[in-house]
């Protein structure tokens, strides 16, 4: 068992609101240099830059988790994390079938770049990513879990795009593994400041859109046997001697 530092919510330059410096290669390079052992790549409603991040991490000590920050039809943001790339690919198919049909407006919303592991431009994603899917909160949670992934409610301490800002409460029975707080809220104070969190586990992450965000933003430290999602799931729940390092 050893300590792993994990950032479970990082955007690449595929997200229209992220800086172009957020290439998979640059993220992995900075992670390796700054002792960030686990990085989840979580772009808005797309996973196209995950393969490049996995390739960039090959031969390094950094583990990349395939993920996505999903926007539900209630305009709630959820971080979906997967163990295997094929689980993410299956999820991307579900997402593709539930898009708004609108195309991105680069001038107003920002550009959406797909790149390879050496920062070469592969494609410009045309679909509007910064908008809601036609799937509900429940549907996203259930389907991600059915594919073997887990769901964390994004930045519940923020006044926009969070389950608490949109609904005011967390629907009972929703299949959430945890809620996330941003750098605004110390993790230990989250449940007190936001009683609606109830007994759900609380994690924090950088939600980085720039390298500066990535390096300075909050992260988790877990005691794990190995840097896998299955281990993180246990650590979040304090099971089998896995846990969160305070």
């Amino acid at each position: 068992m050893r300590r792993f530092v994990a950032d479970l919510h990082v955007h690449t330059l595929l997200s229209p609101c992220a800086a172009v410096e957020m290439t998979p290669r640059n993220i992995v390079w900075h992670a390796a240099r700054h002792g960030i052992d686990i990085v989840a790549i979580t772009d808005h409603n797309a996973g196209d830059n995950v393969p490049a991040a996995l390739a960039a991490a090959k031969g390094t000590d950094v583990t990349v988790l395939p993920g996505m920050e999903v926007e539900t039809k209630e305009e709630v943001h959820l971080v979906a994390l997967f163990e295997k790339p094929r689980q993410l690919f299956a999820w991307e198919k579900v997402v593709a079938a539930h898009r708004s049909g609108r195309m991105n407006d680069t001038d107003r919303l920002g550009a959406q770049f797909v790149v390879d592991e050496e920062d070469n431009l592969v494609a410009v994603k045309e679909e509007m990513l910064l908008t809601s899917l036609t799937l509900s909160l429940n549907e996203v949670c259930d389907q991600v879990n059915a594919l073997g992934g887990l769901v964390i409610a994004s930045h519940v301490d923020r006044p926009a795009y969070s389950v608490l800002s949109q609904l005011g409460f967390i629907p009972p029975g929703l299949a959430l593994a945890a809620v996330e707080v941003s750098r605004r809220t110390p993790r230990a104070e989250a449940a007190k400041r936001f009683p609606a969190i109830g007994g759900l586990p609380v994690v924090t992450a950088s939600d980085a859109h720039t390298i500066e965000d990535f390096l300075s933003g909050p992260k988790m430290a877990f005691n794990l046997e190995a840097p896998t999602l299955a281990e993180i799931r246990q650590a979040i729940n304090n099971e089998n001697a896995r846990g969160v390092v305070l």
Binding site: K73, E74, E75, S100, R102, T131, S132
Partner: peptide, 8 residues
């Protein structure tokens, strides 16, 4: 209050 609804 739903941005996607307004866009549409």
């Amino acid at each position: 209050d739903l941005l996607s609804n307004v866009m549409g």
